[in-house]
């Protein structure tokens, strides 16, 4: 409901000097340091980086879902209304109010033993007072909203009885049905084929735009950033190397790393190139 947007806090995410460390048998391992990010409500921000860049740690830290062995420190860490630094850590974490997450592989994220109807229903009812019957109706509507043609069948099905694309759509429905203020998408399509990826990102971006939900997307794919984000944050080895307006950063990167990352991906426009540009010392 676009009318609500005005009532929301101006910034969905306000993080300064975030550091994420993990306890390992050899002492503390620092996955992210000096991470600062401000996202105003309704923006679409992409965090891009390769494996080991710390982008997933950032996303799990902001969603409040890191395990007990992780330490999160920051001078400021406000997500919607919640101050992350004031939250006690727990073995089984609590949701940061207003924050939903979409994971990479719905096969792992959906609960294998419950039907789609039950999982979607409990998410719709949330902690609110929606009746079961009403939740059932809304669940069917949400499935239609994410482009599932036979909601009645899918509601009765369990995740493993659906195709990969359907599962991903179901996950998106569950994440968005509570109308969150912030959606964190952790590599939402990287397990999928390109045509499906594009369809699903179209779906995510159009739904979040309808709901006025802020989108924070984590990806390794510069193509996805280009098409589906307003701002981009480039991470490398636990630090932010560059951030700014997506079009500007990709057109004229200021950091060498960003430039190298842009240059080394093969593209259909350079079929006859003899060799790909490679990054020296990054492998």
């Amino acid at each position: 409901m676009p009318g609500d947007v005005g009532l929301r806090a101006a910034n969905a995410v306000e993080v300064a000097d975030l550091r994420v460390r993990y306890r390992t048998p050899d002492g503390w391992f620092t996955a992210v340091s000096d991470f600062s990010l401000t996202v105003s409500s309704g923006q679409r921000v992409a965090i891009v980086g390769e494996s080991g860049s710390g982008k997933s740690s950032v996303c799990m830290a902001l969603a409040g879902l890191l395990p007990l062995g992780a330490a999160v420190e920051a001078t400021t860490a406000r997500i919607i209304e919640t101050d992350l630094t004031a939250r006690p850590t727990r073995a089984i974490p609590y949701q940061v109010p207003g924050v939903s997450v979409v994971f990479q592989n719905a096969m792992n994220a959906l609960d294998p033993v419950w039907t789609v109807g039950s999982q979607l229903g409990t998410a719709i009812r949330g902690r609110g007072a929606t009746s079961r019957a009403r939740a059932r109706v809304l669940a069917g509507e949400w499935l239609e909203r994410v482009g599932i043609r036979d909601p009645a069948r899918v509601l009765r099905a369990r995740p493993y009885e659906l195709s990969g694309g359907m599962r991903q759509r179901v996950m998106i429905a569950i994440a968005l049905c509570s109308q969150p203020e912030l959606l964190i998408a952790d590599e939402p399509t990287s397990a999928l084929d390109v045509t499906l990826s594009v369809d699903l990102l179209e779906l995510i971006t159009s739904l979040t735009a309808d709901l006025g939900t802020t989108l924070l997307m984590i990806t390794h794919d510069i193509g996805l950033c280009r098409a589906y984000s307003d701002r981009v944050v480039v991470m490398h080895r636990g630090r932010v190397v560059e951030q700014g307006d997506t079009e500007q950063v990709l057109a004229a990167p200021s950091a060498d790393y960003t430039a190298a990352l842009l240059a080394c991906a093969p593209s259909l426009g350079q079929l006859n190139d003899h060799r790909l540009t490679t990054m020296v010392g990054v492998s």
Binding site: A63, L65, P67, A91, I92, P93, Y94, Q95, P97, V99, S100, V101, F103, N105, N108, A109, L110, D111, P112, V113, W114, Q119, T122, A123, R125, G126, R127, M171, I174, A175, C177, S178, P180
Partner: peptide, 27 residues
């Protein structure tokens, strides 16, 4: 079961605490 992504997803979708725990136990 606690470490499963399914548990994290349940939490992140905002369901009551007992649903999360029952989900872990059933798995």
């Amino acid at each position: 079961a606690v470490d499963d992504e399914a548990t994290l997803f349940r939490i992140a979708s905002g369901v009551p605490r007992h649903v999360v725990i029952v989900s872990v136990l059933r798995r």
